[in-house]
Design a protein around this nucleic acid. Sequence first.
DNA 1: TGCCACAGGATTGGATCCAATAACAAGACT
DNA 2: AGTCTTGTTATTGGATCCAATCCTGTGGCA
Lengths: 246, 246
Amino acid sequence: MSPAHARDPRGSDSVRSQRIAGILRDEILAGDLTPGTWLRQDELAARLGASRIPVREALRILESEGLTESFPNRGARVPVLSLEDVNTYYRMRERLEPLTLTESLSRLTDQHLARLERIQDEIENQSDINRFLLLDRDFHMTSYSACPSGHLLAMTERLWNSTQHYRRAFMVLADPDRATIVNAEHRLILDAVRRRDPEDCERYLTGHIRRTRVELTAHPELFVDSDDASGRPGLLSGRAGFRRGG
Amino acid sequence: MSPAHARDPRGSDSVRSQRIAGILRDEILAGDLTPGTWLRQDELAARLGASRIPVREALRILESEGLTESFPNRGARVPVLSLEDVNTYYRMRERLEPLTLTESLSRLTDQHLARLERIQDEIENQSDINRFLLLDRDFHMTSYSACPSGHLLAMTERLWNSTQHYRRAFMVLADPDRATIVNAEHRLILDAVRRRDPEDCERYLTGHIRRTRVELTAHPELFVDSDDASGRPGLLSGRAGFRRGG
DNA sequence: TGCCACAGGATTGGATCCAATAACAAGACT
DNA sequence: AGTCTTGTTATTGGATCCAATCCTGTGGCA
């Protein structure tokens, strides 16, 4: 029979808190839960069919991934990032991800290369924003996937997750022919990977991230008006108008 | 009166789980809890005078800081790092910390500079290992302390915390005149900071971390024999011989 | 009118109890 | 004798209840 551990050897999402964390992670990355949204334990417990205990655990798990932040006696919310925050995250990416890529580089198989090519082909042959976000992430993560260090990979993923929302917000108002540049950069990275050239990998990946940062942070309107970036629930943030519904 | 929030405006350790996390954090960083040690919720709850709930929260908090790792249905332990893990952490530090320093650089005050000088003076005038570990950490953290990005600072601290135990283990068998090199490096960093020279700051800090990495990873005996690096409690790890005590 | 004290409701934090899972040991079958 | 099965115990995961804290609105007072 082997009831559970055969289907799930890691036991990772047979635990309720992990399942809940997974659901919330998807909702945050998909943009359903936007920065500033307060995550009420009661509400989540009711919505996801569990008690508040696994919800609390899930919020801690997400916090360790940078997807939520919590304040004592006040609750958890999706972090609101300032322009400076995102700028810093991107500078961190510029430094770290070239390392992730070069660590992965020598271990990438031909299957990986084929997959990278396939992903980039699809990126160039469609125009849906959400699809692009998924494919772009997939492109880079695939190039990192042979990195032997789980710590470095986790850190890289964390930096991606933390800035995901602002990437999406940026896409909706981006210059249409921006895609041309992105594709050129991706092609250069792909070529450097194929040649197993760590130096060029670093060069083009750093440039790719840096140019994105410069473009992204040229749009201050993507970020909060700096009036309610504090950690307090406040009057109008979150689910205002919902309490005392009658 | 103002009973609690006057002493603790952030409310950070008026919460039991935060207090417990703080105690455990200190014990791990001080070396009382070594890598591989399993952290049993019952035991910690009894020892720290609380129920298991805040202990669970504390373990999650520490996990988000890289100080513990937990396995579903199996518990939490202080992570056991391989030589490759530590090597990777140091490579991450080589990339990230120069950024932390240059971000901090222009905002460092004369008080900061005086403090750095004082710390380095004390480093050169004592020989206790644990004292050195504290002072060395304090030296670098002080140089980072004006960094405006809390995210970058937290990441930097996390990398330090994760490798703390192996730094200590290294110190006990380090070449005595190693201190000469460390002091020279610190003096060069300090001078570059005083001159507000970001380029030299990066150069000497990167070199400092890199040389330490090379020296540290030249001692494989500091790391596990690769026989019990798995995540399972096993027979002899942890509190073996304690169960069924009579 | 403006500010401070105070009470009510909402939300999170913690304790206790129970269920589920995993490690371990002894026994049955081949 | 060895391996698989099964039962026991220790440990973690989850639910419910209660306490502590915070937000908000109201009323008193200068």
